[in-house]
Design a binder for these strands. Sequence first.
DNA 1: CCCTTTAAGCTTTTT
DNA 2: GCTTAAAGGG
Length: 621
Amino acid sequence: MKKVSKDEWIPSDNIVLEENADFAVKCEDNILVVAGPGAGKTELLAQKAGYLFQTNTCCNPQKILAISFKTDAAENLKQRVCRRYGDEVKSRFSSMTYDAFSKRLLDRFRLALPVELQPSKDYEIDNIETIDAAFKKSGYNNPFNLKKRDLKQFYYQTLSKVELPIKQENLGEKVWKLLLKGFDGKKATLDFKMICILAEYIIRSNPKIKRALQYTYTYVFLDEFQDTTNLQYRLVKTCFKGSKSVITAVGDNKQRIMLWAGALKSVFTDFKSDFSSQETQLIMNHRSAPRLVLLQKQMYDSLNEKSIQVKPSSKWNSSDGKIKLLITDSEQDEAKIICTDIKNMIDRGVQVNDICILCKQLPQNYSEEIINELSQIGIRARIENEYQDLIKEPIIDLLIRFILLALDRKRPNDWEYVKCTYADFSGAGNAQQDIIYYECQDKLTKKLNEIKELITADKGKADVELLLQDIMNFFGVSHIKAHYPAYQQGSYFDNLIVKFEKFLVDELSRASNDWILALESFCGKYSIPIMTIHKSKGLEYEAVYFVGVEDGAFWNFKSQPDEDRCAFFVAISRAKQYLTFTYCSYRTKLRIPQQSHDSINEFFELLKTPGVAEIQELHAD
DNA sequence: CCCTTTAAGCTTTTT
DNA sequence: GCTTAAAGGG
């Protein structure tokens, strides 16, 4: 990485930063960056990391702490920064989730807690049976006969309300004490909220640790800031309020769809006053075509958003972008029309995995007919839930990369990843000069060749179960579990492997035992993803089909209209160029005699505004 | 055995 | 809100 002066610095990868983004990158005070979809919020953070490292504004041994919500978001940011600025910044850019950050603080400084608050070293996470037993042992016997779901919610709420240090002896405090140490032969159990509370208390009650933390992390990035919960925000506040550490928070109030899961509604204003932070807005939308940007802007009123001048990228013509509203009586008609549309799009060169089908909820209730129709012309569409749950697991990722690498050695990224992981597991770490390290490489190469032999020997008909076992034994199951503590709990690990095995066998039979094809296919390269709006957050697609804009899918609209408007906004803003909405008056799986759109009529009025969408209606008579 | 009442789910992540 | 499945009552 070459060092440059502040005036000479230019963004990496030929990216052009709009004025306010450039300001935010170079800003050395706390700043809140509010920006809509496609503005490049995460990219701004990556560029800011580059600026801070390249200009030596963040100088060794100072580090940047980047906090995200999802592991893959944290991982993506880390990869982007490491790719651009090399391994020398790897150890100085800590990109992790809130939960990983809290857990790290707790595990590292557990002994700094007063003895009565120290959890046992081998605590489990979120063992609901233990939690239930602890409440019962503390004398709580569900006096109001709460239903299972409400009971669970009551448990977690009671636990998260406990203030440290413990001064009272109420129910929550009693249960905490049991859970911290374990009881009646049960292991200690914490949930992530408790971990967050403990981490916050460690920092609050240990000025030395707090100072060390602030000294280490002179810059802090907070991604998806609108989703921050009160506990997470309190942790950030305790760690960095009043310090010299500079916080950059990025978020979008129009995409606030996690309030129901506990996001803190006032987090933007709280942050501005607590951290005397400035605020800046980005106005570019690099993602969506002009006509789609226009539709997004038309929603600003209902989202209580001032109409700022959002600008689409200059790569578009002003007439670019297509919006359609498809109204049918039967799911068959809906599926046929979507299918023809998708076929045309693919023929024009759009990649299958650049087309997405979105639902407000339960994709399986809305997409069956579409999946069938598409499969008849050889296009695969699949509900992503289970696949994504597996793909994001580090062990599955490792297995996939290993097999791909065995079959095709020209995969530098996978080689690097597999090699580092293996070296790590074998204790060779980063000691690149060490002879052990070369031994590792040697062993790895041999094993890769061996696996390749196994797979190619019988034209790909190798036994999947044995092969996966073989690879895992090579890395050492105990090493894997030691490295990823989540895998030590219960049968979680074994279940993952069994599921992956099942999926892989299935993919292999589809791909006539072509392992590379099967694995790529498992990773979603050749299929249209189907998912909920919530899962699509942060993603983008050339074409988006929002299936089921109906009251049945927005049953919650009356109780949380603002959040559902945001959900609608998130859905429409995933699309780059093509956006199709569908409404179908009867859905087999829902068995609602006749769908309506009374409660969400505002969406229809929006789409029916002249010049917005092309409307296609198909009625059976 | 049949009819009525009640419960639970529906948008989520994290080691 | 609207569903399905299980539990309850006669």
